[in-house]
Structures are given as structure tokens and as C-alpha cells.
Simulated scan of single mutants.
Amino acid sequence: MMDMEDSELPKAAIFDLDGTLLDSVDLHALAWQEAMVEFGHDVTFEQVRSQIGKGGDKLIPVFLSDEQQREHGKHLEEWRGNRFKSTYLPLIRPFSAVSQLLQRVREAGLRIAVASSAKEDELKKYLDIAAISDLVDVATSSEDVDESKPAPDIFEVVLKKLGIKGSEAVAIGDTPYDAIAARKAGVSAIGVLCGGFTENSLREAGCVEVYPGPGTLYARFGDTALTK
């Protein structure tokens, strides 16, 4: 058996927000679905729900042709943003034990980063809702990158800000897109089921471990990839 002293502990934990720390995926899906219908696209809640975790740059092309994107893609995304902020943002709550988990990560000597596809103004609100603003060392928003997940840009920006290599970090996310993006950036990924994706889909995307949610990660912290 390998001596634990031989294996180097990770230096940072990189958390996704929506569906990982915040119970927000259904609310995002509602806003997107309403926006699609508003602009004449017959898209169901379930169809949109399966795409949440991607940024708008990756989600819109799933449902709109190139011509439709040129015609009203920007307006659709703006409508969605306004709808989300006015109707759904006030309903978002963190999952249980989120601040305790991040506190525990910090006590273990890891730095904490947030890799989110959210817009910058939404990101600040999210950190406040989760009560973790003072625990996060580095955060990225969609404005920091050219492409959202599953492209690795967000993780590459976080790693650069932290000044570490991919192999020195562990990502925690709820979607296959988090795991795929992390893997492309050389980062190991832990999956959580609280965003609604299956354990199978998360493992197929490359997650090394899968847990029900932040509460279980906190309760079983010593057994996780964050401590090995």
C-alpha cells in the first residue's frame, strides 16, 4: 500500500457554483426555457435542463441555427438574464453545509477558487447567497474567458490566478461539462449529484469520486480526493 506521505496533497479546491454549492439549476432552466419560448423556439424544460452547466455561448447553439443566433441570439440571452435576475435569483439557496465545507477545505490548507460560467454581477450575488465571499481566494466569471465549459478556459484562468498546475488542484462540480473541462485542464474532478446529473454520466465524464452533495463531502472530508 502506498504511504500517504509519498502522495502530494492538492494545493487548491476549485468549486463550480450552480448545482454544486447553490440549488439553482432548475431556476436557470426555467429562465432559459421561457426565453426560448418567448423568441418562438419550441423547447421543453427537460431539453434545457440537460444543458445547464454550459455557458450561454455553448447552450444557445444547441437550440438555435446560425441564422437564428445572428438574428436574435443576443436579445434572447439578454431577455433570459433579465428574467433570471428579476424572478429567479431571489429564490436561490445554498445546499446544506456549504460554508462548513469550504471552511474545512481552508483548514486543511487548501486555497479555494470558484470556476463559474455566471456573469460577473450574478457571481458576486451568488457568493453572498452561499455566505462564502470571505472564504474564496479566486473567482472567475464568464467575462474572464472566451469559451465556457466544457472548454477548459475557466479552469485555465483559475490555475493561472492561483499560480499552480492542474495536477495540484481538485475540481468539484455537478455536471459532466465541469468534469470534461477540468480534465482538459489537467485537473482531477469530484462529482456531486445535487445538480441532477446521474453518477454514471459524471463518472463517464471523468469524475474520480461522486458524492450526493456538499453535506456528504463535508461529513466524509477525510476520505475524499481533497485530502490525498
Rank of each mutant, 00 (worst) to 15 (best):
S86A: 15
E71I: 12
G213T: 11
K119E: 08
D57F: 14
S117T: 13
P176V: 09
P152A: 07
S116Q: 00
H75M: 03
E204M: 07
I190G: 01
S142F: 04
G196A: 06
V145D: 00
E143N: 13
V114C: 06
E5T: 15
S65R: 01
P214W: 02
T198N: 06
R183A: 03
F39V: 12
E199A: 15
R83K: 15
Q47E: 15
P94G: 06
V158T: 07
E168Q: 15
D178H: 06
Y88N: 05
V138S: 04
V210P: 00
K149T: 09
A171N: 00
R106D: 03
A113I: 14
V98L: 06
S65Y: 12
H41G: 02
F15K: 01
E46S: 10
T224F: 11
D223M: 12
D128P: 00
D121Y: 11
P214F: 07
F95V: 14
I180T: 13
F155T: 09
I154Q: 02
S65T: 15
F63Y: 15
V170P: 02
F155R: 10
E143D: 15
L135E: 08
I132R: 05
A108T: 07
V138F: 13
I14L: 13
L76S: 01
D178L: 07
E34A: 14
A182M: 09
D153N: 08
D66I: 12
S142T: 14
L193G: 01
M4C: 07
Y177W: 09
